[in-house]
Design a binder for these strands. Structure first.
Lengths: 208, 208
DNA sequence: CCTACCGATCGGTAGG
DNA sequence: CCTACCGATCGGTAGG
């Protein structure tokens, strides 16, 4: 691979070892979003970075550990790019709408080159019991909890109907967002994100 | 012996080679629905079937070919389990509803042990250009075309509103069905299919 | 369908 | 971070 633009270096000082560690995880996240977390190999990462295989291995000591740290690094990106911007919106319905828009924007902006990292590993590990699937389950629950919390807030404030089925609305919003992610990635067509936006608008309008 | 003419012999009697070929594809579909089409290996299939690696290899002559034939075999299962039963319903809205229900039932019945085969390879190959992705694209287009056709029929018959956005409704139904598949597979909770059913009912009700 | 093999790559270890 | 290595497995070939 060629040198790709990196995130601008944060002002804090890192040791060389910490920098390399972070660089490995950066490449790992991008690769995993495209080819899956199971297709990650230590040798491949070493080639991409131009170091020896055992040079990469030394940072993680097992493939499982590499996979888990890659998920953890992706969580930080997701928080920074989706959750935190949305939580900056005013509480209530506006914040719920901001979260949905932040997700669609994150897919459109290509934060991960293979689409949403967590949508990828959901489909990859949904039927493969083990520690990775448990992580996927936890992330899925956190996402649904966040959505339900924002929906509940909007209901409490009278911006959504008291009779709203909170779990059902969270399901329908998630379905629109995640399917939008898969189709956008497949077709590379910006019109797909608009389908997602319309679905989100419709689901929210019906709950008013 | 088998030298005598047999009039009772079913015409679909296969040679041993054809039977083995079909058995390999059967295991390949199941495995791919769980672990992905990229994780299929010839050696693994050989072990599962109790034959030699090159015994399996001889049937396909390349991994690509194995993958493509696996997709083709899965299409036949999908037709038999989802599309054909739905097309047996009366034309119009009833047929559209039958298709959605047939999909949810196919997921619930565990036709593939890892959930819908095509949802799996959609997520797996959406960002990996190549011949497999092209197959995924074609299948996705066929699915959307079928949905849109049934929606259009229902509109023509006055069972759905003339103002219905056909493409948008097809998107929303697909989103509910596919997300239902991923979550059902992840949680192994029958309540998820009900979320899907409710989402389908809602989307159709709004288009009436 | 088999045995016997090929070069490449896998995750991981030893020792520095 | 490196070289050098381990046994296992990969896709694929040769010859039967």
């Amino acid at each position: 691979m060629t040198d790709e633009p990196r995130f601008t270096e944060p002002p804090k000082r890192r040791t060389d070892g910490e920098q390399t560690h972070a660089q490995i995880l950066d490449i790992a996240m991008r690769l995993a979003s495209i080819e899956g977390l199971g297709s990650l190999t230590i040798g491949r990462l070493a080639r991409e970075l131009g170091v020896s295989k055992s040079g990469v291995f030394a940072h993680f000591r097992s493939k499982q550990r590499l996979q888990k740290e890659t998920i953890e690094a992706a969580r930080e990106i997701f928080s920074r790019e989706v959750t935190e911007p949305a939580l900056a919106a005013p509480e209530g319905l506006a914040r719920l709408e901001a979260l949905c828009e932040a997700f669609l924007s994150y897919v459109e902006r290509g934060v991960f080159p293979g689409g949403c990292f967590f949508a990828q590993i959901l489909a990859e590990f949904d039927a493969q019991p083990g520690e990775i699937r448990d992580e996927v389950l936890a992330d899925q629950r956190d996402w649904v909890s966040l959505l339900e919390e924002l929906i509940q807030d909007a209901v409490r404030r009278g911006e959504l109907d008291k009779a709203t089925d909170v779990g059902q609305l969270a399901f329908e919003l998630s379905a629109a967002l995640e399917f939008s992610n898969y189709l956008s990635t497949l077709h590379r067509d910006p019109a797909i994100a608009e389908r997602g936006r319309e679905a989100v608008r419709g689901a929210i309008a019906r709950a008013r």
